Deep mutational scan, measured.
Amino acid sequence: QIFVKTLTGKTITLEVEPSDTIENVKAKIQDKEGIPPDQQRLIFAGKQLEDGRTLSDYNIQKESTLHLVL
């Protein structure tokens, strides 16, 4: 699982696999929060994550925290 922290300070927990794409993660966030993926920007280690890449591409491991910017 990974954590996604929103600007409001809320933390969302997501069940993911390293092979999941960023697009996939955004879809999971939409399921939980109702935020359309095209409004979501995910930041990890100061980098904006691209939809077509996977979590493992960015070396995002379990218990990692991503930041969600709208």
Score class of each variant (00 low, 15 high):
residue 4 V to F: 03
residue 12 I to D: 00
residue 28 K to F: 06
residue 43 I to G: 03
residue 26 K to G: 01
residue 17 E to R: 10
residue 17 E to F: 15
residue 22 I to P: 02
residue 24 N to T: 14
residue 3 F to C: 05
residue 67 H to R: 08
residue 16 V to F: 15
residue 58 Y to V: 02
residue 24 N to C: 15
residue 58 Y to T: 02
residue 7 L to W: 13
residue 20 D to Y: 06
residue 44 F to E: 02
residue 25 V to M: 05
residue 55 L to K: 00
residue 19 S to A: 08
residue 37 P to W: 12
residue 2 I to G: 01
residue 57 D to L: 03
residue 67 H to L: 12
residue 69 V to Y: 14
residue 31 D to V: 12
residue 38 D to G: 10
residue 70 L to Q: 11
residue 39 Q to G: 06
residue 54 T to M: 09
residue 65 T to A: 04
residue 65 T to D: 03
residue 35 I to V: 08
residue 47 K to R: 11
residue 35 I to E: 03
residue 35 I to C: 06
residue 66 L to I: 13
residue 69 V to D: 07
residue 40 Q to M: 14
residue 69 V to F: 13
residue 31 D to F: 14
residue 50 E to R: 07
residue 33 E to Q: 06
residue 30 Q to L: 09
residue 35 I to H: 08
residue 12 I to Q: 02
residue 5 K to H: 09
residue 30 Q to K: 10
residue 66 L to V: 08
residue 44 F to I: 03
residue 27 A to N: 12
residue 45 A to H: 11
residue 23 E to F: 14
residue 33 E to V: 13
residue 15 E to W: 13
residue 54 T to V: 06
residue 70 L to H: 10
residue 38 D to F: 11
residue 35 I to F: 13
residue 56 S to N: 10
residue 33 E to G: 04
residue 69 V to Q: 10
residue 45 A to V: 06
residue 31 D to N: 11
residue 70 L to A: 10
residue 53 R to L: 13
residue 3 F to N: 05
residue 55 L to G: 00
residue 55 L to I: 09
residue 63 E to W: 14
residue 3 F to Y: 15
residue 15 E to C: 15
residue 29 I to R: 00
residue 67 H to A: 07
residue 36 P to M: 07
residue 15 E to P: 06
residue 59 N to M: 08
residue 41 R to D: 08
residue 17 E to C: 15
residue 46 G to I: 02
residue 7 L to D: 15
residue 15 E to Q: 12
residue 64 S to R: 03
residue 68 L to I: 05
residue 16 V to I: 09
residue 36 P to R: 09
residue 65 T to Q: 06
residue 23 E to W: 14
residue 37 P to Q: 12
residue 46 G to P: 01
residue 39 Q to D: 08
residue 17 E to L: 14
residue 50 E to V: 08
residue 43 I to F: 14
residue 12 I to W: 06
residue 70 L to E: 08
residue 28 K to Y: 06
residue 19 S to Y: 11
residue 68 L to H: 01
residue 31 D to A: 13
residue 29 I to T: 01
residue 33 E to C: 12
residue 55 L to V: 08
residue 7 L to H: 14
residue 35 I to L: 06
residue 32 K to F: 07
residue 18 P to T: 09
residue 53 R to H: 12
residue 17 E to I: 14
residue 38 D to E: 13
residue 63 E to I: 03
residue 26 K to V: 02
residue 62 K to A: 14
residue 53 R to W: 10
residue 46 G to M: 05
residue 22 I to Y: 01
residue 27 A to C: 13
residue 40 Q to F: 14
residue 46 G to L: 04
residue 7 L to I: 14
residue 55 L to D: 00
residue 65 T to W: 07
residue 50 E to P: 03
residue 46 G to F: 05
residue 20 D to S: 07
residue 58 Y to A: 03
residue 42 L to P: 00
residue 16 V to K: 01
residue 59 N to H: 10
residue 8 T to N: 14
residue 33 E to R: 04
residue 12 I to L: 08
residue 21 T to G: 03
residue 48 Q to N: 10
residue 3 F to V: 05
residue 6 T to P: 05
residue 2 I to V: 07
residue 42 L to K: 00
residue 1 Q to D: 05
residue 70 L to R: 08
residue 7 L to S: 15
residue 43 I to T: 11
residue 13 T to P: 06
residue 21 T to L: 09
residue 22 I to E: 00
residue 19 S to E: 10
residue 20 D to W: 09
residue 50 E to G: 04
residue 56 S to E: 12
residue 11 T to M: 13
residue 36 P to D: 08
residue 62 K to E: 10
residue 14 L to K: 00
residue 64 S to C: 10
residue 19 S to R: 08
residue 41 R to W: 10
residue 22 I to K: 00
residue 45 A to T: 05
residue 43 I to S: 09
residue 18 P to N: 07
residue 32 K to Y: 07
residue 52 G to R: 09
residue 4 V to L: 05
residue 50 E to Y: 07
residue 12 I to C: 03
residue 62 K to Y: 11
residue 33 E to D: 05
residue 5 K to Q: 11
residue 58 Y to R: 01
residue 40 Q to V: 09
residue 6 T to C: 11
residue 47 K to W: 08
residue 28 K to G: 03
residue 17 E to S: 14
residue 42 L to H: 00
residue 64 S to D: 15
residue 58 Y to P: 00
residue 61 Q to T: 14
residue 22 I to M: 04
residue 53 R to G: 06
residue 70 L to M: 09
residue 28 K to P: 00
residue 7 L to C: 15
residue 44 F to A: 03
residue 38 D to Q: 11
residue 6 T to A: 05
residue 34 G to F: 04
residue 60 I to R: 00
residue 52 G to D: 13
residue 41 R to E: 12
residue 26 K to W: 03
residue 43 I to Q: 07
residue 1 Q to I: 15
residue 27 A to D: 08
residue 51 D to L: 05
residue 32 K to Q: 11
residue 28 K to R: 07
residue 23 E to N: 08
residue 36 P to V: 06
residue 13 T to G: 05
residue 64 S to K: 04
residue 13 T to M: 11
residue 37 P to M: 15
residue 23 E to S: 13
residue 62 K to W: 09
residue 52 G to P: 07
residue 3 F to G: 02
residue 49 L to F: 02
residue 28 K to H: 04
residue 37 P to D: 04
residue 32 K to D: 03
residue 25 V to D: 00
residue 69 V to R: 08
residue 31 D to K: 14
residue 2 I to E: 00
residue 56 S to H: 11
residue 58 Y to N: 02
residue 52 G to N: 12
residue 51 D to R: 04
residue 20 D to Q: 04
residue 30 Q to G: 07
residue 23 E to L: 11
residue 62 K to M: 12
residue 1 Q to N: 09
residue 11 T to I: 13
residue 20 D to F: 07
residue 67 H to D: 12
residue 64 S to V: 08
residue 39 Q to I: 12
residue 45 A to Q: 15
residue 61 Q to K: 10
residue 68 L to D: 00
residue 42 L to V: 04
residue 13 T to W: 07
residue 23 E to M: 14
residue 54 T to A: 06
residue 38 D to V: 08
residue 55 L to W: 03
residue 30 Q to I: 03
residue 9 G to A: 04
residue 8 T to L: 10
residue 30 Q to A: 12
residue 68 L to R: 00
residue 62 K to V: 09
residue 2 I to T: 02
residue 11 T to F: 09
residue 18 P to E: 10
residue 4 V to P: 01
residue 54 T to N: 05
residue 22 I to C: 03
residue 8 T to I: 08
residue 59 N to W: 04
residue 30 Q to C: 14
residue 10 K to S: 07
residue 1 Q to C: 12
residue 70 L to W: 09
residue 52 G to E: 12
residue 23 E to G: 14
residue 21 T to F: 09
residue 22 I to R: 00
residue 51 D to E: 09
residue 2 I to N: 01
residue 32 K to E: 07
residue 14 L to D: 01
residue 47 K to V: 15
